[in-house]
Each structure stands twice: as structure tokens, then as C-alpha cells.
Nucleic acid binder design. Structure first.
Length: 423
DNA sequence: TCTGGGGTCCTAGGACCC
DNA sequence: TCTGGGGTCCTAGGACCC
């Protein structure tokens, strides 16, 4: 039996979320910025048509956006996360097996379905998601994940598909691959695009017919797998249960540059706290804490960046120990006289948190007492909003926090920010 | 003045061991 | 002075994704 992959991809997801809660934005140009209002990460069709590229630095495009009366938003991840859950729950009505691939994409396996029914079924999924959540999606259907992805790309570009591109129903898949620029293929980024173009490979179809040996040499085994998928041979399986992360990273750019060690410590402690929360969420413990600092990337002189790695005496998920290690590391690499733009904390050497008997008596063992304290803190923060309860090391003023000047309300996750219906 | 953040996988090369 | 071969483990760097 051949495999069938269906990919559901939300159309300019963050913009669609903002529009859902503010219907006045429906026909207007809208974009959403990354953290710290750094660059454009989600664009409505109108903004794409103006020629603002994905990832465009906001400061460079501010004037153009203003000129075209684009509605600009800071990112609002609690809102997007919640909307994503609604979309995924809707998809779960169609099949219990789902791979939640990213905040705005999911793969569904439809093995064994009749080919001719699938396009209509895709339409039904699309209609239902829109009806239940207000989010428009594109649907791609193919015999591999990569081809399903091709499908969503084609569905977005070709109006005739009406949002659903079923490559299994196409008599000639090459015809579609020929219309897809090689840069839009899953696994082909900026570097590979430039390299491939140098060899006259411009479309997905061109890539499909290159020799295996050549592809492997130029794009490693990962590239070869992807090309096999373009040819309809599955190389990437559906993974329903997400693997626990192998590393956890929390970092932010500052709103304004920071020179003082005290403020850097507060920021590092804040990131360490959040990293520890993520760690506990996936029931892991860490053995290593790394902390890094960096001045602005675009700084001409006085550029400095460094990283320190601090081993923990026992694997732990205790925020206090992780904060302590992060601050210790920071002290090792901090240099006076620089203006820092960013600090981050990452946790590595993660393992599953199984209480171990043999280390029960070790001084730093992550034991019952510590676990219970962390559990209590997590449940308070879950109920009353993250950061309700914090550690003193994180500071109170947080003058280093990033910019977020155009943020919409958290309509769905905060009672005090609920939409008010006007009669 | 101002250019995100959080991940994964692959490969090459060095350290170390026998 | 010259200078093995094979294996493993780790890390850094580069590519990608969203």
C-alpha cells in the first residue's frame, strides 16, 4: 500500500490570527514582527505584493510599510500558540494520527484512502478549519512529505487549486514541479539555491533528475533523501509522538544595549528560569548549562562574543541551580567596556528525569523536596500567567527587555484582555 | 538607533585509545 | 627522523526549517 501524506499549512498564520480578532484588518495589508520588533516574519498577501521579503529588517522597511498603510504588529506568541491549539484540535477530528510539525503546520497520514476522494476531503478539512477557528489553510497531498509540501506551495500560488493541491490526482507531477522554483523546495535554503542556480538547476523538476552521486556530494545525505522524496520514494516518516528536545535554548536581544554586569545577570537568570521550565515540561534533567553574551552583530569596533559552559554536579531541573550555573558562567566571560546586545542560556546533555536510587544521598541530588518546590512554582505560573512567581535573581525592573511596541491583546489567554462585544 | 528566536541534522577534524 | 591503522567520542561549523 502506498503512503499518502496530507500537509495542512496555515496561510500567513500570525497575520491570520491578528485578523481573526480584529476583522477590520481582513482586506487590509497586515504584517507581524519578530521578537524585539526586529524583522517582518508574517505578511499578508498585500504586503508580499508590495515586495517586502520574509525576514526584512523592520527599520529598513518602516517607511515603505507606513506609506502603504500597513498595519504592523509585534508578535504575540500566547495568542498564536492558543490559536494553533485550536487548529490542531480541529484536525484531530479527521484523524487521530497527526504530526504537529510546527506552530502552523501538521502532517496527516491518509494511507488507504481512495485517490479520487482525497481532493474533496482536503476541501472539507479546509472548510472545517476555517469555520471552527477562522484560520485559512492550504492543503497539499502527495506520496511523500516533500511532495505534500510541494502541494501546499502550489496551492498557495495557483488560484485554480482553490487551496487544495492533490499531486496524487495529477497525471503529470513533473508539470507542477517545473513551476516550482528550486528555492521553494523543502530543504533548499539560500545557500543551496545559489549553488544550484550556478549549475543551471532552477526548478524542482531540474533537481529531481540530477544524479544521486552528484546530489550527495553537493548536498549531503540529507539533500539526497529530499530528492528521493521528490521522486515519490518516502524517506521521512510521520512522527506522531514528538521526541524530547536534545537542547533547550532561551535568549533575547535587548531593547537597548546593556553594559552593566548586574543587568546581564538579571537577564541570564530570567532566561535560565524559562529554560528550566521548558526542561521540566518535557520531564528532562540537564547536566550542562551554557551561557553566551554578544555585542551587536553589526557593531564595527568593540565586537565581542563568548560562551561559557558550566557542568552541574548532578543532573537537575531545579531552576535555582540552573540560574546559579548561568550566573557563574556569565561572570567568567563578562568583559567590562562592551555594550551587549544579547544574552542567552542553553541546556545540554539532557536525559529523561527518572529519580535514581543510587545517588539518593548525594548532596545536590534532584530529589523529592526540590521537585515538589518546582512543581508548586510551575502550577502557580500555569494558572496565573507565566512569571507570576519569579526568582529574585531575575530582577524587577527588567529595563533590558526587548521592544514590543505594537502588541495586540492576549484575547484568548488573559481574562482581563478578552474581547468586549459592543451592542 | 534600529537586523528574531528556537530548533535539527550532517560533516570534518581533533583527541584519545589500543 | 620518521611517523600505522582503526575505532570512538566530542565539538565546531554549516546547512536547513519555521
Amino acid at each position: 500500500m502506498n503512503k499518502i501524506f496530507v500537509l495542512i499549512d496555515c496561510n500567513n498564520f500570525f497575520v491570520s490570527c491578528e485578523r481573526f480578532f480584529n476583522p477590520k484588518l481582513r482586506e487590509k495589508p497586515v504584517c507581524v514582527l519578530s521578537n524585539n520588533d526586529g524583522c517582518v516574519v508574517s505578511r499578508s498577501q498585500e504586503v508580499k505584493d508590495i515586495g517586502v521579503p520574509m525576514g526584512a529588517p523592520y527599520f529598513k522597511y518602516e517607511k515603505i510599510l507606513k506609506y502603504h498603510k500597513v498595519h504592523v504588529f509585534s508578535s504575540n506568541f500566547s495568542l498564536y500558540g492558543d490559536m494553533s491549539n485550536r487548529v490542531m484540535k480541529t484536525l484531530a477530528h479527521f484523524t487521530p494520527e497527526i504530526e504537529f510539525y510546527s506552530i502552523d503546520e501538521a502532517f496527516l497520514p491518509f494511507d488507504g484512502f481512495e485517490k479520487r476522494d482525497l481532493t474533496e476531503y482536503g476541501r472539507e478539512i479546509k472548510r472545517t478549519v476555517y469555520k471552527w477557528t477562522g484560520i485559512p489553510v492550504s492543503v497539499g497531498i502527495g506520496s511523500t512529505k516533500t511532495l505534500a509540501k510541494v502541494g501546499t506551495e502550489r496551492a498557495k500560488k495557483e488560484l485554480a487549486f482553490d487551496g487544495v493541491c492533490n499531486l496524487l490526482a495529477e497525471s503529470d507531477i513533473d508539470k507542477e514541479l517545473e513551476k516550482l522554483p528550486v528555492s521553494d523546495v523543502w530543504g533548499v535554503g539560500r545557500r543551496y539555491t545559489a549553488m544550484l542556480k550556478g549549475f543551471g538547476i532552477n526548478t524542482a523538476r531540474d533537481l529531481k533528475y540530477q544524479k544521486d552521486e552528484w546530489i550527495k556530494r553537493k548536498m549531503t545525505i540529507a539533500g539526497l533523501n529530499m530528492v528521493h522524496e521528490l521522486r515519490g520514494k518516502p524517506r521521512f516518516e510521520l512522527s506522531e509522538t514528538p521526541e524530547p528536545k536534545k537542547q533547550i535554548l532561551c535568549s533575547r536581544s535587548f531593547g537597548k544595549k546593556v553594559a552593566e554586569l548586574k543587568k546581564l545577570k538579571e537577564a541570564a537568570a530570567t532566561h535560565a528560569t524559562h529554560a528550566a521550565e521548558k526542561l521540566r515540561e518535557q520531564h528532562s534533567v540537564a547536566e550542562m548549562v551554557s551561557v553566551f553574551v554578544a555585542t551587536g552583530k553589526h557593531e564595527k569596533n568593540f565586537r565581542y562574543s563568548n560562551v561559557a559552559t558550566v557542568p552541574l554536579s548532578e543532573p537537575t531541573a531545579d531552576s535555582r541551580e540552573i540560574i546559579k550555573a548561568a550566573v557563574t558562567g556569565l561572570e567568567q566571560i563578562y568583559k567590562k567596556g562592551y555594550w551587549y546586545k544579547k544574552v542567552g542560556v542553553f541546556l545540554t546533555r539532557l536525559s529523561f528525569d527518572t529519580p535514581m536510587q543510587q545517588t539518593l544521598f548525594a548532596k545536590d541530588h534532584y530529589g523529592k523536596k526540590k521537585r515538589n518546590l518546582m512543581k508548586a512554582i510551575d502550577s502557580i505560573n500555569n494558572e496565573f500567567g507565566s512569571d507570576t512567581m519569579q526568582f529574585a535573581a531575575s530582577g524587577t525592573h527588567k529595563s533590558w527587555k526587548g521592544k514590543s511596541e505594537k502588541k495586540s491583546k492576549r484575547y484568548t489567554t488573559r481574562w482581563d484582555e478578552l474581547l468586549v462585544a459592543k451592542g
